[in-house]
Simulated scan of single mutants.
Amino acid sequence: MANQQASEKWFQDSAARSIHTEQLRKVELFNGRAAMLGFVIGVIVEGLTGQGILHQIGLGALVDGYAACSTKMLPFCF
């Protein structure tokens, strides 16, 4: 009886692991496709507006400040 319960538990655990793996595969596939689509849209918008992807999401000031600091054009650069 205990052997049968252990066998059933193993089967249930194996089935749950298989279902979880399949769901994870589908979710990762969707995430990858969404990321590719977002990147392509960002590149298209960059081509149309001339603003880079970081500028589009509001981080342009950080990039501009870094470029200025790397050329030592700003007095407060470290």
Rank of each mutant, 00 (worst) to 15 (best):
H20E: 03
F30R: 10
M1Y: 00
A16Q: 12
E8Y: 07
M1G: 14
G52P: 02
V43R: 13
G52R: 06
M36D: 09
E46K: 11
W10N: 04
G50P: 08
V27E: 12
V40K: 02
G32F: 05
L48C: 05
Q4F: 12
A15K: 14
V43W: 12
M36K: 15
F11W: 13
A2E: 06
G32Q: 12
V43Y: 01
G47W: 07
K9L: 07
N31M: 12
Q51R: 12
R33F: 03
L29V: 10
G32L: 08
E8F: 04
A6I: 13
G32E: 01
M1E: 11
S18L: 06
F11H: 10
N31W: 02
A6D: 05
A16T: 15
V40L: 15
F39H: 15
A16S: 12
G47L: 01
N31T: 10
M36Q: 02
N3Y: 00
A15P: 03
W10A: 05
L24I: 06
Q12F: 04
T49C: 00
N31E: 13
F11D: 08
H20L: 11
G42C: 03
Q23Y: 02
M36H: 10
F39I: 10
L29F: 10
L24K: 05
S18P: 00
M36V: 08
